[in-house]
Each structure stands twice: as C-alpha cells, then as structure tokens.
Amino acid sequence: MSTVLNVKALSKSFGGLRALNDVDLQVNSGEIAALIGPNGAGKTTFFNCITGIYEPTDGDVFFTPLGATECRVNGMKPNSVTELGMARTFQNIRLFKNMTVLENVMVARHCRTKAGILDALLRPPHVKREEKENIEKSYELLKYIGLNKHYNDLACNLPYGDQRRLEIARAMATEPSLLLLDEPAAGMNPQETASLKELVLDIRDKFNLAILLIEHDMSMVMSLSERIYVMEYGCLISQGTPEEVSKDPQVIKAYLGEESHA
C-alpha cells in the first residue's frame, strides 16, 4: 500500500503561540483516517497547513497524487495544492451562497477546465463542448450525492445537512486523490449522520480515494476509520487502529475519558 499523504514534524506558530508541534501523520491510498482531539487541539490548523492556506513554520508535507510522483507541498498556494489533487471541506460551511447548486460544483472544476477570457468572448466549438461536459459531469456528481433535484436553486436555500453534502460534492468535483473532511457530520441528526457514513464509504470505494477526516462524532469515527490520530494542544498524543486508540490511557485521559461515560 502506498502513502498518499506523508507529514513529517509539522509545526505552526502564530506569534508566540505554537498551534502545531512536530506532528507526524500518514494516510495510505484507499484508507480512511481520522484526526480527533478536543476543541482547540489544532486539527483545523493542521488542515490549513497541509492545504496551503497557512504556511507551516517547520516540517514537511509530502503528497503523492494518484499515478504521479511524490512532491513537497508546503509553501504552495492553496489552488496549486488543490490542482495536485487534495480537496477539502470546511468546518463552518463555506459554500458560494449566492450561486446555484450546480454552479458551486462547476466552479470547483475550474482547475480541470481551460477556457480563458478570449474563449469566453468568442465561444469557439471546443469551448462550448468543454462547457457542456462541465455541466454534465457536475450534474452527475450532484446526482451521485443526491442533490440533483435542487440543481438550479441557490446554495443558501438548501437545508443545513444538504449544504454539508454539497460541500463534499464540490470538493469531489476537483477530482482529488485525497479528500479532507472537516467535521462533516457537525450539526447533523443521527439519520443524516448514518447516510453520510454510507456516502463516505461509497466515495472511497467508488473513486478509489484516500480520506482524512476531522470528526467529533465518536461512533462515526470508530466505525468508519481504519486509522486514528489523536491530537491535544497541538501535539500528536496517540495513533493506531480504533481499538488501540480507544484503549490508550493517554487518550482516555485527554479526551475519550469524558466521552466514554457520557
């Protein structure tokens, strides 16, 4: 099994505050891994560092897209990281609210399409073809995720759970090899969470992706992921299979302790 994401000794400081401290993390191809930890442990900062939104202070992020060679992505711009094949969703939903559902997905295919300014003005046949293909592929994705009925509605008019699903569809539209999900089940009811779980599993199998997710819903994390990383105060305190992690006394003390008798 090959490694898709290989993070070595990643650190990030904001002024004097060390938000990430020597974090090592690997995600293998076709694997679902989870990153857990109490609020403020630095999980989202970790996502921001590997996707190029923040530049890491120290350490390396290596990323191997499907069928390509490994490359070091720290310091790259977020759009280049996405273009390489790493896509993400956001903890606090960041959809393009005043664009339609279909447009949201079409925008995400920006780096997989080419039409420039002159193409837009003159609309030669190959551009029309590209546009049509873009619509079809985007619609396919919406259908897959179950939002095709609403394709012409504004994204802000979707119910909350559907907005989270649309974020996933949008990330999938960039044709990633690694999908990063930041608390995909936050604010969902149990039925929605259950169907989300199905979706995540199906995405992995169908698109042959690696998935790294941040999640607070323990039942979802435990049943979904093959490997779990636990963070606290910016440091990695444990890692392993769900069984190993849930037995780790340090994890129980830091995090699961309160969770398990709740």
């Binding site: 996707t51 190029g52 939104i53 711009k77 977020p78 759009n79 996405t82 273009e83 896509a87 993400r88 956001f90 960041r94 959809l95 393009f96 925008v107 995400a108 920006h110 780096c111 997989r112 949008r170 990330a171 960039t174």
Partner: peptide, 8 residues
C-alpha cells in the same frame, strides 16, 4: 478562501 481551496 473557499475559492482558493477549489483550485482558483
């Protein structure tokens, strides 16, 4: 930010 994260 989302715009950049979508590869733009």
């Amino acid at each position: 930010i989302a715009c950049q994260a979508m590869g733009i």
